[in-house]
Simulated scan of single mutants.
Amino acid sequence: MTYSAVDQDFEAARAAAPAARNVRAMRAVRIWLFTVAALVFAMVVVGGATRLTGSGLSITEWKPVTGALPPLTEQAWNVEFDKYKQIPQYELVNKGMTLGEFKEIYWWEWSHRQLGRSIGLVFGLGFVAFLLSGALRGRLALTVAGLGVLGGLQGAIGWIMVASGLKPGMTAVAPVKLMLHLTTASLIFAGLVAVASGLGRREREATTPGVRRFASAMLALVLVQIALGGLVAGAKAGLTFNTWPLMDGHFVPPLSALFLQAPWFENLVDNPMTVQFNHRVVAYAVVALALAQAWAARRSQPGSPVCRRASAIAGLGLAQAGLGVLTLLEMVPLPLGLAHQAFAMLVLGMSAVHWRLTRA
């Protein structure tokens, strides 16, 4: 090999080095974003456990920093217990509970808040590190920063939700605020997985406008269904009308029952029959749309990644619908309730990835 040939190889390697560094940087950012998404997923599941065990009001103060330490002495535990005894939930629901029973609900809420702090720490340190290294820049940096701002807002929404349950006469949080809290968490999760899944892709997938429209509609409808699920949880509507496919003997309940309260729009939040019926109807729509998307993808792009993802979403949607029916029939036991919430996030995550990759 001549000197000039060696020199040419060296120049080519030097030119390729920045591209290789960029690939490694994007891989690291992708791993970081998926890690944060996994923590958000865990937080949603633990939040579901907090709700199902009635633990969400056990910590009556918002201390983002000092609250990271739980009570460490028996005296400190009694102080926290005395604070809990001052709220309506204790007087109306849990009066007479022991300190040991209080600790059980306290640990659920503390774990939920601790996960929130962990998410903030992992996100914040990673964002600063990748920003300083140059891995995050331009539109990507702004998008990720926006998700961070939404995460910070989520902490405030969580406290506003808890505070709604501390008011006189309240024994649980307000359904609308629970819905807002869950929906915001879902938006953050979907955003994280969508951004992460689009990083480092070398080739753009060939997709049709129809495929892209299906992907957008699927993602939007899943988010709507999760929001309605938050209302079902807030109104405890899953503990009523525990039959399927009929509700109180009807496939479609009479309007007089669905719109029992006045003004009519309050039924959308406070009427357990209306809240659960809406959740059922949109569940049918999610399954129908998922199957239609899989069929359309199979017809237009058989055997492609698009087709495989659409089929996976359809399978997850059917499994989630079946799990929802079982959860309803069994009156929402803790394991089934958590599985139903976790599967909802899986359907959402897969829909977000599919939506992003049809636009990559």
Results as ranks from 00 to 15, higher is better:
L260A: 12
M179C: 03
R137V: 00
M161C: 01
V93T: 13
T240L: 10
A190H: 11
V195A: 10
S118Q: 03
L153D: 00
W244C: 08
L329S: 07
N271I: 03
L268Q: 09
V23W: 00
I59E: 06
A257W: 06
L187D: 00
A215Y: 07
V65T: 05
R51T: 09
A68V: 11
G155T: 06
K177W: 05
P64M: 09
P70K: 15
L323S: 03
H340C: 13
I313L: 11
F251K: 08
P263V: 02
D9R: 15
I31Q: 13
L258E: 00
G148A: 12
N267L: 01
A288I: 14
G124Y: 04
M97N: 08
G96Q: 07
R24F: 02
V144S: 03
G210H: 11
R137G: 07
A297F: 02
V269I: 14
T60S: 01
A290S: 11
V122K: 06
A135R: 10
A174K: 12
A12S: 11
A220C: 08
Q114V: 00
N22I: 11
L192S: 01
L323E: 02
K167C: 02
H181Q: 12
R213P: 01
R280M: 11
V325P: 02
F343P: 11
L348R: 11
G67N: 07
M350D: 05
V173W: 02
L329K: 15
